[in-house]
Design a protein around this nucleic acid. Sequence first.
DNA 1: AAGTTTATTGACTCGTCAATCAACAAAAAC
DNA 2: GTTTTTGTTGATTGACGAGTCAATAAACTT
Lengths: 194, 194
Amino acid sequence: MPKLGMEPIRKAALVKATIVEIGRAGSLDVTVSQIAKRAGMSSALAHHYFGSKEEIFLAAMRHILTLYGAEVRGALAAAQGPEGRLRAVLTASFSPGNFRREAVSAWLNFWVLAQSVPEARRLLAVYQRRLRSNLLAGLRPLAGARAESVADGLGALIDGLYLREVLKSGAPDGAAAVTVALDYLTSQLKGPRA
Amino acid sequence: MPKLGMEPIRKAALVKATIVEIGRAGSLDVTVSQIAKRAGMSSALAHHYFGSKEEIFLAAMRHILTLYGAEVRGALAAAQGPEGRLRAVLTASFSPGNFRREAVSAWLNFWVLAQSVPEARRLLAVYQRRLRSNLLAGLRPLAGARAESVADGLGALIDGLYLREVLKSGAPDGAAAVTVALDYLTSQLKGPRA
DNA sequence: AAGTTTATTGACTCGTCAATCAACAAAAAC
DNA sequence: GTTTTTGTTGATTGACGAGTCAATAAACTT
């Protein structure tokens, strides 16, 4: 009963299933069979559409980054003024969606992947550049020449806060992370030292 | 030719070899045979001394944390005054040793492990508590009541800066990371807001 | 209607790997 | 000097997993 035009549907299902399975395992130690089963097809079909397990992982990574990007863009669209834009980036970065088990596991494992898979490293670089550029857009009116260095610090702080929140025991607290980041921002903008 | 008292020697060799292999693979996708071979023994002996692969990994993680702890302690011993102590913690955290491939891979993978292996999570919590306590010791004389929140922000910033340095392409720059962290510190200490 | 393209899977290959075990060797204990 | 403890490995087990392939079937083309 083959219906035509299945490819994008199957691929999307596999990507979703991959992220779920990575979340369940907490690692990339996930078999193609597990993924395919969760996506409701045979493992042979998964190989047919993606060619290899690594391609499946990379597609999943692209999807995670796309989701994050869309969230930021959405928040940005509703933001008013430079402070509003910065706040939008922060709240999007620490939104509940990013603290779901699947997202957490995906991010941590993508950092690991980036060490050895060039394409994964490239994708992560894209994410970082986009974040930096978003921060800079909000910072330039407020920090002038210091915008660049504040953006770099803030970018690192965002990643670090995320890491802390997801690794600590107990439920992560995105709002607290936003507060700390805003506090960093305030103190950096107050005292524009040498 | 069995000499007695081999156990600690063999275990130490296995731990070292494990860290090297994790560095080479960039992941925990490392076989006991690879580790044992690098350590100059049969895989059976590795199992004999550690019981399971997971135990080997945990021993490696303990070793990495021990190394880091020793480095911090050493730097702290030579430090003068609160500012000196804080600077010591930062330089130790961004020392060249922590940017060696093996160390990087170990840290990234231990973050992943911490998601699913309780003992790994515990070890990471120990590291974070120790870091926090070291920062607090330096911060209390300088920041008073704000010490706690500054320590939390600085701790996250350290992790985030580390992550950025190790994931960016090109050689990591520990000194730059220290500078950013010190700048954070300065601006936080200047404006003790409400 | 014959041929082509797309969808789909069960069965299979070939490899790997964690863990176990039997056996051997040397030192220590008795 | 025999028994026990410690060190050591080759061989094996038992399981699993990525990727391939032949075969089947529906749809679309000509």
